[in-house]
Design a protein around this nucleic acid. Sequence first.
DNA 1: TCCCAGGATTCAT
DNA 2: ATGAATCATGGG
Length: 268
Amino acid sequence: MITVELEHFSLDKICDSGQCFRMKKLGDGHFSMVAGDQYLEMHQKNGIVDFYCSQEEFICYWVRYFDLDTDYEVYMNAANPRDKYLNAAIEAGDGIRILRQDLWEMIVTFLISQQNNIKRIRKCIETICRMYGERKFSTEGVEYYTFPAVEALSQVTEADLRACGLGYRAKYIAVTARTIASGEISLERIYDMSYHRAKKELLKLCGVGEKVAECICLFALHHMDAFPVDTHIRQVMDVHYKRGFPNRRYKGMRGIMQQYIFYYDLYS
DNA sequence: TCCCAGGATTCAT
DNA sequence: ATGAATCATGGG
């Protein structure tokens, strides 16, 4: 186990921020999370966070994953002091981080997210992991399932995916998995692309539109200018940013501002 | 029973 | 280039 003191880091808010659906609250400040083929448990009380893993795993994997090298105070202080709404959102969302999650996992996750609610998104993802992921055990003996690989989902029929409760999104996932498995679109190349090129490439995938592409760019590729506009953000824009969100001012940090606003709108 | 949920696609004008 | 209908499913 490794213990660190972190500022502007909240497992609770990260869990509720609607970007990672494989993080669970175990109660009493304890959390679990599955990322890649890794399983991790954590505990947080105020600023003190325990990561139940080796120091090497922490340094080599989780620091980058949770974006721990970034000073989020810079983002928080960048808000226009006259923008009362944004400052309130930032205060409420203090502790949210933009994670660096797996690209394939984010593609599938946000295909599922469309016209869906967060509780059910979680359930759908849990189901496909249980059905088509790899069953593993942590060093402590906790059973968990990895996110199903491209090859695994590319061989599943649309009907079988439908049986997971995915609804009409089953087709999107089946087609997209085949598109990527065939090599028609390369995830490795997307990792190396600029924000705009990556987004353009992602838009070629079946079922990926403007909003989903932005989510993938932000939560997997860490393009901090990505700004997903969903029903919540749209509504906030109509009320508080009738002249549009000040994109120029928040260049390089639009994504985190979006997350603060999304979280604030969702839980206030 | 109706309405909605982190939308995208298809088809109509 | 815009606008409406359609798409599954579960929960309120």
